[in-house]
Design a binder for these strands. Structure first.
Lengths: 153, 153
DNA sequence: GATATAGATGATGAAACGGTAAACAACATG
DNA sequence: CATGTTGTTTACCGTTTCATCATCTATATC
């Protein structure tokens, strides 16, 4: 069970659909339809992301959701931390409680390095990177809809 | 939520207390007391590990548990896979379902490499490595018991 | 073979995560 | 200001993971 939470993935995917600040607000239900994320669940996620300052939500007619900052300035790390917290950056690979820098478990030095590598990667990639990938891969999802699903869970 | 499951950590810790095949059987309750793992829970874990061939369990008077193979031949990977399975080696960092080698998400190449690095490390480390660490760190745990816990969760 | 010992097993429970449903509150528009 | 649109909030459900408890079963020993 190594990856970030499923909800963190939802957040990245959903935010990659939104416009930069000043742009056209997107409806949560549209984002849900586009991404396949359950509407009601996404609604709660968006609400939480709004409270954490990642997006701006406007309700009522002509309402919707936009990014609070340009996509190029929002790193995956910020999103992951908003959803999952940063506890994973301090955990031991094997879950040992007595595993700190000065009393390390056998995997400690290795795992510390891995965590930092992962963290750095999340910090270096932004929503803009995801969005450009999503634009390219929309074709794939179209094919998924047309062909019998031989691949996706 | 990046590390392996807590139960996998339990397994590594518990198995590191056992003798090689032919050695003296250890009581599950003793292992529980030594490691801090809940007795009843460890009992079921041990049972599962016995079914998977990692340990030999003998019940009844003078019973107990020993490793099925020498500690030096049991890798952390084998233990982790017995407990958690190997699904984590195929998951996307962000949980995208459309993330395979030929239709990768932006983090795919990076994450694939990380997974392989982690897997290799788990394959290279054995129970013997853990056991020697545990022997050294027993002092620490003694101190934990004597001093107010300022560190361990 | 009776007995104490020790693992095996099944029922149960609490907490976290993913997910649902419905009532609620704000806002643009006519 | 009435209305419909759209996000907000609350409560609830199902599954998985970690954990407990009681009971059953095997076995070494006397």
């Amino acid at each position: 069970m190594l990856p970030l939470s499923q909800t963190a993935g939802y957040a990245v995917l959903a935010l990659s659909c939104l416009d930069d600040p000043g742009g056209a607000p997107a409806l949560v239900q549209d984002v849900a339809a586009r991404t396949g994320i359950p509407r009601a669940y996404l609604s709660k996620l968006m609400n939480s992301l709004a409270h954490k300052g990642l997006i701006l939500a406007k309700r009522g007619n002509k309402g919707g959701v936009v990014l609070a900052q340009p996509a190029r300035e929002i790193t995956l790390d910020v999103i992951a931390e908003a959803v999952d917290g940063d506890a994973w950056r301090r955990t031991c690979l094997l879950g040992f409680s007595t595993c700190l820098d000065d009393r390390a478990c056998p995997a400690h030095a290795f795992w510390k390095e891995e965590r930092e590598r992962i963290h750095a990667h999340l910090q270096q990639n932004t929503l803009a990177d995801i969005a450009s990938f999503e634009r390219k891969s929309r074709t794939w999802r179209l094919m998924d809809a047309l062909l019998p699903s031989t691949v996706s869970p």
